[in-house]
Design a protein around this nucleic acid. Structure first.
Lengths: 350, 350
DNA sequence: TTGAAAGCGCTAACAC
DNA sequence: GTGTTAGCGCTTTCAA
């Protein structure tokens, strides 16, 4: 008797429900899965039995036969552990970039009752573990946020045959679906805007140059400036954090004291630049105009509000999720890429 | 023949490996799971067969019999959708708080090869979906980051019998393990420090007052000030974002122009206050001393660097993960709570 | 130490 | 429209 205290009532199974409803397991299964061919009468009986028993289908059992898990992985992959004072996680989670992506993904996943498994890959060991995890069939597909161009993961995923969508253009010509913003065009708009404002001594703070996004923005900006007759644009490399923006701005100021226009490859670095310019008693935009990239929420709240190139990250992430769902639904679906427009948002800083 | 192109080699199963190794499924299973009683000779044969076939155990099948998934959920729960210009996700992912937690959790989970499923719950529908998800057995346990005091989730989790650890003291006396920082003590240290600096007209910017963390910090600060003879401390409520800190600081300045000390209930709001004070031409700390709470990485990089009360979030999160693992291992393990010390970090702002 | 066999809970043919 | 049945791939007694 006293042993009853710890004896939990066994989780009800299809079998139990079937018994209660006086039908076969198959019928209950049909009702649960909303398959048409069921007598409305019976359906009600079954539903009552489900409610009465508090039945919930067992995920593992279902997954074993359907070969579906109802989960997808969001993988954030960094090719190498970086050595700077640059903790991977701190960077990931402090940049609004990540939150905006998750937001967009969850928005499209939730109505499909698909869950998100978050995985961080920052070294070889983690990558090995990841590949194993995927092969074990924990998830139906993968959204890969991969920064470093040399990242082997896009290739590995493609080989594994797991449905996957990449957050950028693959560096080699790997047949994998991806979503991207028009980086190049955006950067050209930045150049045009600075020149139109009358800036003549312009410099840029780039992102890490092992990433195509950084490279594209730099190339676009250089091309834009070149079109206006500025063949040379000084640049300093940052790492997309605010502090790196500060360091870069200090360096730029030391090397080019008369700089009057800055294009930073993301908003966080632009905000760092803003702080340093202020430290030096320089007015923005009067003395130096500053333009960022992303359009984070914080861009509206800095001093002064930041002119920036907006990329619609939420929409892009949502599109990644949709694409992935399509690939999961139809494994033969052809590899697809979607490019989103970027947009110049003029606020006060430039 | 041509059909072979799309015919993937079937994923190897235990059966295949057994056949290749010339042993029974059971033996292979033992080798895979590292069970001792296996002839070293045979073990090697089996391992070779595993390597040859590229075998990886099927998660669903294993999970079906072991009743373990090797995953835990990190649930971020907000009781109600907020109406301010306060997008849930933006807030979550922009505050370094979240990244620090994930970092701490992953640090202890990874060696155990346990995965993290991220789930966001911001309304009733999502909560219902969540409960269902948990009952389906997708995960072995739950780390719940719950802010709002009225959140029904701690109660629901407890009732469900699912192993769980909460990120704060439960508001009702719910038997659930939790981890917390010494909020009250930390806030008292803030008061002591401001008074010791010579501040005599002190105010505070609180967090949302439906959260115990906010309440504790406010109560602690008031108690600390009272001990020094300040019975009344003006306060304005923020929502833990930088912008709310700005709004609060503006309001405080309007109502109490001579304020000379501010305790903000987190670093983000403190940074907002810093900006507004600067806008008003007030020097920090000469005219107004400012002290925050958390010790985010950004606290070191603002102007001036922020004096703050540090809570060891990474360690706290790691402890939550450890506790959860313990509960999963031993379902009879008693409910436990761990309180971490907070610490005053003096930088320039106070 | 190893193998045979039962069965975890479910879906999906297939027959009725 | 409904029930019967055969697995999905694995772990785990139980015998040998």
């Amino acid at each position: 008797m006293s042993r009853d205290r710890s004896a939990k009532p066994p989780t009800p199974t299809l079998e139990h429900v079937a018994k209660v409803a006086g039908v076969s397991r198959a019928t209950v299964s049909r009702v649960i899965n909303g398959i048409r061919n069921v007598d409305p009468q019976l359906r009600e009986t079954v539903e009552a039995a489900v409610a009465a028993t508090g039945y919930v289908p067992n995920h593992a059992a279902r997954s074993l036969v359907t070969r579906r898990t109802g989960s997808i992985a969001l993988i954030v992959s960094e090719a190498e552990e970086r050595t700077w004072d640059d903790p991977f996680l701190g960077r990931i989670f402090t940049d609004p970039y990540f939150g905006r992506m998750v937001s967009g993904i969850l928005g499209v996943l939730r109505p499909h009752a698909v869950n998100l498994v978050l995985m961080l890959v920052e070294n070889d060991e983690a990558r090995t573990q990841l590949v194993r995890y995927l092969r074990q069939g924990h998830v139906d597909g993968v959204i890969l946020i991969s920064t470093h161009n040399e990242d082997p993961l896009p290739q590995l995923l493609t080989e594994s045959g797991m449905p996957a969508v990449l957050s950028r253009r693959p560096s080699q010509s790997i047949p994998i679906s991806y979503v991207e913003a028009a980086q190049h065009t955006g950067a050209i708009m930045a150049a045009d805007h600075l020149v139109a404002r009358g800036c003549t001594r312009v410099a840029t703070i780039t992102g890490p140059l092992d990433r195509s996004a950084s490279l594209d923005r730099l190339a676009g900006f250089r091309e834009g400036m070149a079109r206006h007759g500025y063949a040379y644009v000084p640049s300093v490399e940052g790492n997309f954090t605010q502090e790196s923006g500060e360091r870069a701005m200090e360096q730029l100021l030391a090397e080019h004291p008369k700089v009057d226009g800055i294009f930073a490859a993301n908003d966080l670095m632009a905000q760092g630049a803003l702080l340093v310019l202020h430290d030096h008693g320089l007015r923005v935009p009067e003395d130096v105009a500053v333009i960022g990239f992303d359009d984070n929420s914080s861009a509206q709240h800095c001093r002064p509000p930041l002119t920036t190139i907006r990329q619609p990250l939420e929409d892009m992430a949502g599109e990644m999720a949709k694409l992935l769902l399509t690939h999961i639904e139809d494994p033969e679906h052809q590899v697809t890429s979607v490019i989103f427009d970027t947009e110049l948002l003029v606020r006060r800083s430039a």
